[in-house]
């Protein structure tokens, strides 16, 4: 169970703070796979990273993160070490290309485990079982990363990052560079890992909402550093309440839809700068239903069980 309250993280730059994550408040239940969606640059990666590793120039500004009843000292790089990998695991964007090319995969895993005080030989049987599960032969442990295809690498990364059964897995754009067939395999694996209890809950960060429709239990939509809406997947598609969510879903091409029959519409305009974002609702400029109240920041409120929205029109 993950509880995040008013989490605010900025990037410190020479021109001031980039307000990339503003007062994020949400909970993630055990067993939940939550998709985190939004346009590029809206702060998805920032949110994912801030739960585990505040890489400079990220600055902790405020808020709390509670995992399984214990507050995480996310502002303290040293103290977080104890939680990283063991309790929270992150698969960063482009992770599969970041594998050290000069290390054999088995050796790399051994070193990683050692740094966490876990014995490689003790965990080896379990590791082999999991490789079997994702249909990788055990020979991969003796191979170099370049000898694997993109899909194989991504599966390898998933096995490694969940080896210690963390409570939370954060997967940042892990399907983006893959072909549809491998995409599907990787997604199915995420569900399977959850079902088998390798991870309790998962946050999948992606800009591809159709993937979330396939596997996520809930979807959280971000816009310009703020949370816009979070709801169970079906609700997001059937009854989205934030105008941004609505327009985003309306802009998705669906197989079976032709432009002659149904002309989709994009969202005019572009997101605001996060260096000095406009006050109030950050979607205001592009919002077709904005009104006077929108100059105040709308709170992120639960309007029905499991469905939260930050929009004055929705309350």
């Amino acid at each position: 169970m993950l509880q995040v309250e008013n989490l605010t993280v900025y990037y410190k730059t020479i021109r001031g703070y980039v307000q990339a994550l503003e007062k994020a408040t949400f909970t993630l239940a055990d067993g939940e796979i939550m998709g985190l969606a939004g346009e590029s640059g809206c702060g998805k990666t920032t949110l994912g990273h801030s739960l585990i590793y505040l890489r400079p120039p990220m600055n902790y500004i405020g808020g709390r993160v509670v995992l399984d009843g214990q507050e995480l000292p996310i502002w303290d790089m040293e103290k977080m070490q104890e939680f990283r990998y063991r309790h929270i695991s992150l698969i960063p964007q482009y992770a599969m290309n970041a594998l050290n090319p000069t290390r054999k995969i088995g050796k790399m895993i051994a070193e990683l485990l050692e740094s966490r005080g876990v014995s490689y030989s003790e965990i080896l049987p379990e590791l082999k079982r999991r490789l079997d599960l994702v249909q990788l032969t055990q020979d991969v442990l003796k191979m170099y990363p370049i000898e694997l295809s993109g899909g194989m690498k991504q599966r390898m990364v998933m096995v490694i990052s969940t080896l210690l059964n963390p409570s939370l897995l954060i997967a940042d754009e892990i399907t983006s560079a893959l072909d549809v067939s491998t995409q599907k395999a990787v997604c199915e694996m995420l569900v399977e890992f959850r079902d088998r209890g390798f991870v309790k809950s998962t946050i999948i960060i992606t800009h591809d909402i159709s993937i979330l429709y396939q596997i996520a239990d809930s979807i959280m939509v971000m816009y310009a550093g703020q949370l816009s809406e979070k709801a169970p997947t079906e609700v997001v598609f059937q009854d989205p309440r934030h105008p941004y969510t609505r327009m985003l879903i309306g802009s998705l091409p669906k197989v079976g839809v032709r432009y002659q029959e149904e002309r989709l519409r994009g969202i005019p305009g572009s997101p605001p700068q996060l260096l000095n974002p406009p006050p109030g609702c950050r979607f205001r400029d592009r919002c077709p239903v904005a009104f006077g109240r929108c100059t105040e920041v709308p709170p992120f409120l639960e309007i029905s069980p499991g469905h939260s929205v930050a929009c004055w029109r929705a309350f």
């Binding site: 994702v134 249909q135 295809s149 899909g151 194989m152 599966r155 072909d179 549809v180 067939s181 491998t182 995409q183 599907k184 395999a185 997604c187 199915e188 591809d208 159709s210 993937i211 429709y213 396939q214 598609f237 998705l252 669906k254 197989v255 079976g256």
Partner: peptide, 17 residues
């Protein structure tokens, strides 16, 4: 990944790929 229908459970997608 379609928006009008979910993936079939365990399709015959090769994981080798």
């Amino acid at each position: 990944p379609r928006l009008d229908r979910k993936w079939e459970e365990e399709g015959r997608i090769e994981r080798k790929a």
